[in-house]
Simulated scan of single mutants.
Amino acid sequence: MPELPEVETVVRDLRPLLAGRTVVGVRHSAKKLRRPWRPAWNARVTGATVAGVRRRGKWILVDLLDAKRNPPVADAPGSPVLRVHLGMTGQFTVVPAATPEPDHLHLAFALDNGTDLLLRDPRRFGSAEWFASRAALEDEMNAELGPEPFGLDAAAFRDAVTGTARNLKAVLLDQTIVAGVGNIYADEALFRSKLHPARTGKSLAADECDRLRLAVEAVLTKAIASRGSTIRDYVGGSGLRGGFQNEFAVYGRTGEPCPTCTGAIACERLAGRSSHFCASCQKSSPQSKTKKATKARTV
């Protein structure tokens, strides 16, 4: 499933290709996505000009200028927005209009420069929705999503993590705590911070919380620089693949040597997902307790 680095890469690819372009037509498939596209939205989107493309969590947001407003205003609370989620296998790309239509195509937005913005999704877990009001959309999303993982408030993150008895894998996958992190980058961040995914949030000391917060940001930043991870279907908005899969320390590497200690990477089911870690580098018990036990044995 595309996570924050993949979605951010799509957004960055699409931004120069869509900015200032006007939608001149919409085609949609009869096959429904997870959240069905409403045919009535075709007329709403046709004639609208793209004001910008941005990301919130794992969502792609295309800000539109309503052609019916005089004059159109960019970024106004009442401006319409197209919200897209890539699901597990979605691709959102711009191609020349003459390009043969791909299979599993669900939406095609014809643009005024002879290109098409295509949304295809073989497994149909993705979605595309039109919102009349940017303010209404953001009210809904802010109620469901926590802060972005860049520049997180240290105290607020500590409180969120240590205030739960859930394991750290579940904590990182909780979009209300930090938006955009998924299975791949949770594993990689936990390895970088030397924290076992089965540790509970409330077991972490303040310095461990800080280490985790910084690791999440560092891993995501590095993944974005590599255009995300292509495991199966993911491509950026320009159709190019990601490269961070070549840099995984633990994810998907069960039985392979740890890049730090050469011990075998383990895999355990946590929070309903496969979790990859190094049992040697990522201790399963709090560091403070380990120190106390060691001291007791030497007395």
Rank of each mutant, 00 (worst) to 15 (best):
E3M: 09
P5H: 07
P5Q: 09
V10H: 09
R12M: 06
R12Q: 14
R21E: 09
V24I: 13
V26I: 14
R27F: 01
R38P: 01
A43Q: 14
R56C: 03
W59N: 13
L65S: 06
A67Y: 03
T89C: 05
V94G: 06
A108K: 12
L117M: 04
L119S: 04
R120M: 09
R120P: 02
P122V: 11
R124H: 05
S127Q: 07
A136C: 04
A136I: 07
D139G: 13
F150H: 14
D153N: 15
A160L: 05
L168W: 09
D174A: 10
I177Y: 01
G180I: 03
G180A: 08
G182M: 05
D187Y: 04
L190T: 06
L190G: 05
H196I: 02
G201E: 11
K202Q: 13
D207V: 07
E208Q: 15
C209R: 08
C209F: 06
I224V: 09
I224Q: 11
F244D: 04
T260M: 03
C261I: 04
T262Y: 05
G263P: 00
A264W: 03
I265R: 02
C267V: 14
C267K: 15
E268W: 05
F277G: 02
C281T: 08
Q287V: 04
K295I: 12
A296W: 00
